[in-house]
Amino acid sequence: MSSEHAVVVTGSTGGLGAAAVERFAAAGYRVFGLDRAASAAVARPGVQQLDVDVCSDADVRDAFAEISAGVEVVGLVHCAGIAAFGPKNPGHLISPESGDLIDNLTTIERTLRTNLLGSFTVVRHAAAAMAQRTPDEDGARGFVVLTSSGAALDGKAGQSAYSASKSGVIGMTLPLARELGRFGIRVVTIAPGLFDTPILDDTPPLPRHVPFPARMGEPHEFAALAHHIAENSYINGEVIRIDGGIRGGFESPIPFIK
């Protein structure tokens, strides 16, 4: 891959995003990481980190303008997102014990804004940048990899806001693939299960829920799938689970219980 071809990775300083940065840089792409903590990232050849809040249209617009001024954007791997809720901050709407209202609407709104609206914000600018490229011999101009979650399909009690935000990412996948296909841009979503990333730092390991292999996923496994999607031009409009076969049925009705 030419070093003049750039892949943009959001959420680039940790977890799935950091692994994607490493994988695409190793494959010869120029990589631009967009993250609110980009200034703290370790420097590496072929990678440039930009301080960007994916919820800010102005931030994202300026980042893509800067990137596109020097290289052609051929891909987006959008990993930026938040869980917001966990064992110490359950996302229930009412108390499971008393039925009293829980005052967490601000957190619910932040979750939806970051995970769903943030996805639209980044995709619109990435797609506009790719659409300006000269297509290759197959008519291709680029690819978009979005990140959903197994919770979008098998959400547990207390995950309604997070599940809704990630279900929205699934819901946008096929319509965007159809919209952007005329420009030679593919759109694919990955739905990870339980991965060993900072987003689950406060969560007990849950390998007993995974059929095989009975362990948490490793970020490099997500990155390998994202890279395969980039290289396989016939994958489009699809949602791909990567979760060791985990499906619903946590023994506790409350999420994140060991």
Score class of each variant (00 low, 15 high):
Arg61Phe: 08
Ala177Phe: 14
Gly33Pro: 03
Thr107Met: 11
Gly193Met: 02
Ala58Asp: 10
Gln48Val: 15
Leu112Val: 06
Ser12Tyr: 04
Glu218Asp: 15
His228Met: 00
Ser2Ala: 11
His227Trp: 06
Ser165Glu: 09
Cys55Gln: 02
Asp136Glu: 02
Ala65His: 13
Val52Asn: 00
Ser148Asn: 09
Gly11Lys: 03
Val210Phe: 00
Ser39Phe: 15
Ala224Ile: 08
Ile235Pro: 01
Thr173Ser: 12
Gly46Asp: 11
Phe250Tyr: 14
Ile94Val: 15
Leu34Pro: 02
Asn104Gly: 08
Gly15Pro: 01
Val188Gly: 07
Val187Arg: 01
Ala214Glu: 15
Gly184Phe: 04
Ser165Asp: 06
Asp196Arg: 15
Val144Thr: 01
Val73Asn: 04
Val210Lys: 05
Ala41Leu: 12
Ala18Glu: 09
Val31Phe: 05
Asn232Tyr: 14
Val8Trp: 04
Asn236Lys: 08
Asp196Gln: 12
Val9Ile: 09
Thr13Gln: 08
Gln159Lys: 14
Ala18Tyr: 13
Gly181Tyr: 07
Val145Trp: 06
His228Gly: 12
Pro205Trp: 04
Gly11Val: 01
Met216Val: 07
Glu231Pro: 05
Leu76Arg: 06
Arg178Lys: 11
Glu231Leu: 15
Thr197Gln: 00
Glu231Trp: 07
Phe32Gly: 04
Val47Ala: 08
Phe85Glu: 05
Arg208Leu: 13
Ala226Met: 07
Asp201Cys: 13
Leu93Asn: 13
Ala63Val: 09
Glu137Asn: 04
Glu22Phe: 10
Val123Lys: 02
Leu176Gly: 03
Ser160His: 10
Gly118Ser: 12
Ile102Asn: 01
Gly11Ala: 07
Arg44Asp: 05
Leu174His: 05
Gly15Trp: 00
His5Asn: 15
Asp196Gly: 11
Glu231Tyr: 09
Val52Lys: 03
Leu76Thr: 01
Asp103Asn: 13
Thr111Pro: 12
Ser233Cys: 02
Ser68Tyr: 06
Gly11Gln: 05
Arg241Ile: 10
Ser39Lys: 13
Gly75Arg: 04
Leu153Val: 08
Val31His: 08
Val31Tyr: 01
Ile190Thr: 09
Asp154His: 14
Pro219Asp: 03
Arg44Ala: 07
Ala161Glu: 00
Leu206Asn: 09
Ala214Asn: 10
Thr203Ala: 12
Ile240Gln: 07
Met172Trp: 07
Ala20Ser: 07
Pro45Cys: 06
Thr121Pro: 00
Pro96His: 04
Ala152Val: 10
Leu93Glu: 09
Val8Gln: 01
Arg30Ile: 09
Cys79Gly: 12
Ala40Gln: 13
Asp35Ala: 14
His228Val: 15
Leu180His: 07
Cys55Tyr: 02
Asp103Trp: 15
Glu66Gly: 09
Gly249Ile: 11
Gly91Phe: 11
Pro45Asp: 13
Asn232Cys: 14
Thr147Trp: 06
Ala27Ser: 14
Ala84Ile: 13
Thr197Arg: 01
Ile170Lys: 10
Asp53Gln: 03
Lys156Met: 15
Thr134Pro: 00
Met216Gln: 14
Ala161Phe: 00
Asp59Ile: 09
Thr197Tyr: 00
Phe256Leu: 05
Ala140Val: 08
Ala27Gly: 11
Ile102Arg: 05
His125Cys: 08
